[in-house]
């Protein structure tokens, strides 16, 4: 299995704080059977000033440590980009990690303001396909499946957080996640792992619930970008 959304890189966002946390998380991945993790720290102006260079560098550092520790996990530099008016320019300047023409993005959780469409459009102009992270957590979209379909038809991909199925992000997110999963609308599932507190048992429980809902093919959604 492959995880495309992870805050495993230490010290550059609200994910792992120190290298020890990153290693613990790597062990969790190994136990869960993941072979490859896309390291996707937040990119948000001023608050998380991460760019391609920084992520690549931190990724290499961690990979080295994992290799020493004999943890078999392949790390790929990626990012979770907060959508604001600066994003299109950064995409144009190739400052963000785009893999296979795809970029992981997130909007505000409480609403889906109209300007997001403009930013998404501006990204697509540069032939980059946005993957909307944990779409089931957005308060406006939770209630609006039609809007989600519309976004997909408009050329966006959507990613879900596997823990949503356990109610970790609230009842509304859980409901939305299940609906999207049953309707086979998710392009990707991921862990969005922030720290080692989200332990193996929680992910196993979430996986079991997802399998119960749609069967073994749920594993196939943890796939390459």
């Amino acid at each position: 299995m492959i995880d495309i959304h992870s805050h495993i890189l230490y010290g550059i966002d609200d994910g792992a704080e120190a290298i020890g946390d990153s290693v613990k998380m790597a062990v969790i991945y190994e136990v869960l059977g993941f072979k490859k993790v896309y390291c996707s720290p937040h990119v948000m102006n001023f608050y998380y000033e991460n760019d391609l260079n920084k992520v690549v560098q931190r990724c290499a550092e961690l990979q080295e440590v994992l290799n020493k520790e004999k943890i078999e996990l392949e790390l790929i530099p990626f990012a979770e980009v907060y959508l604001d008016e600066s994003v299109p320019a950064k995409v144009a300047q190739k400052k963000l990690p785009v893999i296979n023409g795809k970029l992981l993005v997130e909007g505000p959780l409480n609403e889906w303001p109209p300007y997001l469409e403009e930013i998404l459009f501006a990204i697509k102009i540069y032939n980059v396909c946005p993957i909307i992270a944990h779409i089931e957590r957005n308060r406006d979209l939770q209630k609006n499946l039609a809007k989600i379909r519309q976004l997909k038809e408009g050329g966006c991909l959507i990613q879900g957080n596997i823990l949503s199925i356990t109610g970790y992000y609230g009842a509304s997110a859980k409901r939305c996640f299940e609906e999207l999963l049953k309707a086979d609308l998710y392009d990707f599932l991921a862990t969005d792992m922030h720290n080692a507190e989200n332990n193996v048992a929680m992910y196993r429980e979430a996986m079991d619930k997802a399998k119960k809902l749609v069967g073994e093919q749920v594993k196939a959604l943890f796939k390459e970008v």
């Binding site: 001023f46 608050y47 959508l83 604001d84 008016e85 505000p108 609403e111 303001p113 300007y115 403009e118």
Partner: peptide, 18 residues
Amino acid sequence: PKSPISESYRGLRTNIHY
């Protein structure tokens, strides 16, 4: 910076831009 109020200001900024 991570409070919802700050996020509202970021939304305001982006909205004015667009």
